[in-house]
Write a protein that binds this DNA or RNA. Structure first.
Length: 553
DNA sequence: CGTATTTGACCGGCGC
DNA sequence: GCGCCGGTCAAATACG
């Protein structure tokens, strides 16, 4: 974990704390995984460093002042008192210096002379500062608890989804065989265990798409011929549900022509299999709409511009880029400004990287891959996806059904992740700087590690956005019960857990960065399932069920 | 001088 | 068959 996480957290509501100080004297909280610098926080206060030294000096030579040892004895009581007195307001950081000064000072008796008063005042401040330290410890512990709760909530949700996936898989497999058997078999090939539409291998490293070499010519031909009417059905359903065009700003002529064009290009003859799968996979596209002043969002990959065209219906030119991080990488993207709102940059990704990705590129690559995978596996193989494309949207962006739209108007549909909306008031507005995927430099962000993707997603989100949470209410109301300065994690604090988790989840999921990372995490999960199941058709159902499960929540 | 970008030409598919 | 359109190529140009 990066120190920036904790630093951001600490400085979010305390302007006196610099946000970029080095992590000296940090306290590592194992659960949080990031250092929380309590002493540094105090040092950065303009009074604290001097006071700490002076108090020690005075306490040594002036025995009338309570020595630090005594202060330590007094400290727990003061902490408890403060916590009791502030049940409804806990700010993450911490208007600490002035909040309870009066009460703290009241605990120290009066002074006799001016000099003694001075010393007493300083020792009082020392006590106060130590109280603050204790309080910050307590708050950090509370934050740890909240974080663990949220993490656990996501983990539980994930497990629940997996359970539902398996249940739905059995149910829908039976339904598909009975009701839609013929059509579905062309896409799923459930009975044979083949994977005609195994478009994406969304492993952690963003590897190339798996190709189905097992499909025979006859089955491929049958599938291909039957795919067109089915996809036409998808188009109708998608348009009926969404009622708008999701593929960038392209008019229908473009979409339809592009679709038909690609379909024929993909399947010019009876030989489908590898080239078909590759082309199909590559043409599954994910559009990301983000507000950006920059000509291109920085997604961590290296791109080389190879063309620019004026697209019909949009005065803004469309730029074509290809990934240059590896020779022969098939990933390409189109960048074009929205005709209606020039501040919106629409980036359409296409294909899967055939090379390892740097951490900075993992988020976007995984997100687009996951979205494409969900789109393909969900919409094309299930009535859920066909009849309700927003299920996918909600799966990718559970915070808002309007932030992701699904276009199944083509054999190679497009999902649009709209990161231009900000529906949650808790989310603080970031400046209109070029869109940045929330990775911090030097941060180990290998989704293939042992850490659960969800946890990583949340952690990654936390790095950038947790500081935006306003935790004072739920923490102050119930989380800050009087207890030891460093209490262990107590799941017994349930009364506010729901609200806490809800508020945190709301704020978290409202963040585009988190949704991107979450989608990446989901992709990792599904990708792992893909790999584990050797690309059998279970994974299609898995993705589909995931979408349905999300939609039900 | 090497690399990246620009930009006009070219290609293939589709609609009329 | 022709024109339109999206997408790509590659020579020319710009840049460090």
């Amino acid at each position: 974990m990066d120190k920036g996480w904790g630093l951001t957290l600490d400085t979010s509501s305390s302007p006196s704390f610099p946000s970029n100080h080095p992590p000296t004297n940090d306290t590592m909280f194992p659960l949080l995984g990031f250092p929380v610098n309590l002493s540094r926080a105090s040092k950065d206060d303009h009074q604290t460093p001097k006071l700490l030294g002076e108090v020690d000096f005075f306490s040594d030579r002036n025995k009338s002042t309570p020595p630090p040892s005594l202060l330590h004895h007094v400290k727990p009581h003061i902490v408890k008192k403060e916590i009791d007195e502030t049940p409804l307001h806990v700010n993450t950081g911490l208007q600490l210096l002035t909040a309870n000064t009066g009460s703290d000072q009241s605990t120290v008796d009066d002074g006799l002379s001016s000099d003694a008063e001075d010393k007493r005042a300083k020792s009082t401040e020392l006590a106060h500062l130590q109280v603050e330290l204790q309080r910050m410890n307590a708050e950090n512990n509370k934050l740890k608890e909240m974080l663990s709760h949220v993490t656990g909530n996501y983990t539980a949700l994930q497990m629940h989804l997996m359970t539902l996936m398996q249940q739905n898989q059995r149910t829908e497999s039976t339904e598909n065989e009975v009701v839609q058997g013929k059509v579905e078999d062309k896409n799923h090939d459930i009975g044979g265990g083949k994977v005609p539409r195994q478009f994406l291998n969304i492993g952690p490293s963003g590897t190339t798409a798996e190709v189905d070499d097992q499909v025979s010519d006859s089955s491929s031909d049958e599938r291909t011929r039957s795919s067109t009417p089915q996809n036409n059905n998808i188009e109708v359903a998608a348009r009926n549900n969404n009622g708008k065009t999701e593929r960038e700003e392209s008019p229908d002529s473009e979409s339809q022509g592009w679709a038909a064009n690609k379909l024929q290009k993909v399947n010019p003859s009876n030989s489908v299999d590898q080239s078909t799968s590759e082309a199909t996979m590559r043409k599954a596209r994910v559009s990301v709409r983000a507000r950006s002043e920059a000509p291109m969002i920085s997604d961590g990959c290296q791109w080389r511009k190879y063309g620019q065209k004026m697209a019909k219906g949009n005065p803004c030119p469309r730029a074509y880029y290809r990934c240059t991080m590896a020779v022969g990488c098939p990933v390409r993207k189109q960048v074009q400004r929205c005709a209606e709102d020039r501040t919106i940059l629409v980036t359409t990704y296409e294909g899967t990287h055939n090379h390892p990705l740097p951490p900075a590129a993992m988020a976007m690559a995984s997100t687009t891959t996951a979205a494409a995978s969900m789109l393909l596996s969900g919409s094309m193989s299930s009535a859920d996806g066909i009849m309700n494309p927003n299920l996918l949207a909600r799966a990718i962006l559970p915070c808002s059904s309007s932030m992701a739209t699904l276009s199944a108007s083509a054999p190679f549909p497009t999902v649009t992740l709209d990161l231009t909306h900000n529906p949650n008031p808790l989310q603080f507005q970031r400046p209109a700087a070029p869109f940045q995927v929330p990775f911090l430099p030097g941060q180990p962000q290998n989704f293939g590690s042992g850490v659960t993707p969800i946890a990583q997603a949340q952690a990654l989100y936390n790095q950038s956005k947790f500081s935006g949470l306003q935790l004072s209410q739920e923490v102050g109301s119930s989380q800050l019960a009087p207890q030891a300065p460093r209490p262990p994690l107590q799941p017994s604090q349930q009364p506010s857990l729901a609200d806490t988790v809800s508020a945190a989840a709301t704020a978290i999921t409202a963040d585009p960065n988190f949704t991107a990372v979450l989608a990446a995490a989901i992709s990792s999960i599904i990708g792992g399932a893909h790999n584990a199941n050797n690309n059998n058709n279970t994974n299609n159902n898995t993705s589909r069920t995931t979408i349905s499960s999300f939609s039900g929540n």
